[in-house]
Design a binder for these strands. Structure first.
Length: 339
DNA sequence: TTCTCCAGTCAGTGCGAGCA
DNA sequence: TGCTCGCACTGACTGGAGAA
């Protein structure tokens, strides 16, 4: 078992302070003799030393740990976000604890409480509903950065994507492609999961605004809403559509990658795959889309921007400098087989 | 017997003080 | 000046003492 500072000091006949200064690399700064420094180093190399983070955070009133609560890791977007944010935190010498709430407000509330009890310095949160930001801010002393979902208000630091604009651009791009290949009256089917979330509702607003501007009639647009953005709901929604005998659309747009994957699974099981001429589209991006033969257009979020802004906001909140700000990342369309 | 209060413990940190 | 030490403090928890 590694020694404590007290044990090292005891056995070397030095004070706790002297040992601590050497271990913190401040021997020169506090004029500890080279001989004493060498003794401490030799001793810890032989017997080991592990800092007690509980005691340290108790005294410093900070834990050098941050927390991130996302809906689920099986969603590629959130998994990617978590990974990059963890790397960014580690680069700054901070530890990031990651938890999933599965969009359950009760679970999210419990996780917020647990992270507060573990004395995290701040929380990155994808809120499960409109009440969560206020609740989390109260528990985490306002050290809160909201990600992906903006329920309004100017009290919190927020980093989101311009979902409305990207929805608009996506619909226009898809329509232009259909017209280009000679399909002048394409019909659209929108699969939307959890449209109560601002990110999803804004995507739908953007998509529908573009379809309005393009003059699509009611018969050219359908919308299927499911409670969540997950694989099974996408699979079930597409299976029901096929089983009901309704015609498949020329253009299928899904509000997230998991929903898209589920829809593709149902098409594969029932029809052997998506019809070759069906134009596919989804929000968020995944490299596996490269392997589809259909025309596919995804919407890639600017991860680098989101991570940097979120981290910078958190650093400001912790240091007590500046006011929380809202940052809006742009999105980029990624067309495949659409030349 | 039950309850409340208070001192001590844990392992660190920051800062002022003391000694040669 | 160079080097080292000691104290106060952090929050949750424990155990002993004394009161009801």
């Amino acid at each position: 078992m590694a020694k404590t500072i007290e044990a090292i000091a005891d056995e070397l006949g030095l004070s706790i302070t002297t040992v601590r200064l050497v271990l913190l690399g401040k021997a020169r700064q506090y004029r500890i003799s080279a001989k004493t420094e060498a003794r401490v180093r030799e001793y810890t190399e032989l017997h080991g030393y592990e800092i007690n983070h509980v005691a340290r955070s108790l005294r410093l009133q900070r834990s050098d740990a941050l927390a991130l609560i996302i809906p689920r890791l099986s969603n590629h977007f959130f998994a990617q976000l978590a990974e990059l944010l963890e790397i960014r935190c580690r680069k700054a010498g901070l530890q990031l604890w990651i938890s999933c709430c599965y969009d359950n407000p009760d679970t999210q509330q419990e996780l917020i409480k647990q992270f507060r009890e573990r004395n995290v310095d701040g929380l990155f949160l994808v809120p499960a509903n409109a009440n969560m930001p206020a609740l989390a801010a109260a528990q985490l002393k306002q050290r809160l950065v909201l990600l992906d979902r903006d329920f309004g208000g100017n009290d919190y630091a927020v980093v989101v994507t311009d979902n409305r604009q990207s929805g608009y651009q996506l619909a226009q791009r898809l329509h232009a492609f259909c017209v280009q290949r000679g399909d002048l009256q394409p019909d659209f089917l929108l699969f939307a999961g959890n449209s109560g979330m601002p990110s999803i509702s804004q995507r739908l607003v953007g998509l529908n605004a573009a379809l309005d501007d393009l003059g699509l009639s009611a018969s050219q647009r359908r919308e299927v809403q499911v409670p969540h953005n997950d694989f099974h709901e996408g699979e079930q929604a597409m299976a029901e559509l096929i089983d009901s005998g309704q015609p498949l659309p020329k253009v299928l747009v899904c509000s997230s990658i998991p929903l898209f994957e589920g829809a593709m699974q149902a098409l594969k099981q029932r029809l052997g795959g998506a019809p070759e001429n069906m134009v596919l589209a989804t929000f968020d991006d995944h490299s596996m889309l490269d392997f589809l033969r259909n025309p596919v257009c995804s919407v890639r979020q600017d991860y680098a921007f989101m991570i940097e802004q979120a981290f910078s906001e958190m650093a400001q909140l912790i240091s007590g400098e500046g006011q929380p700000a809202r940052h809006i990342a742009s999105m980029r369309l990624v067309p495949r087989n659409m030349d």
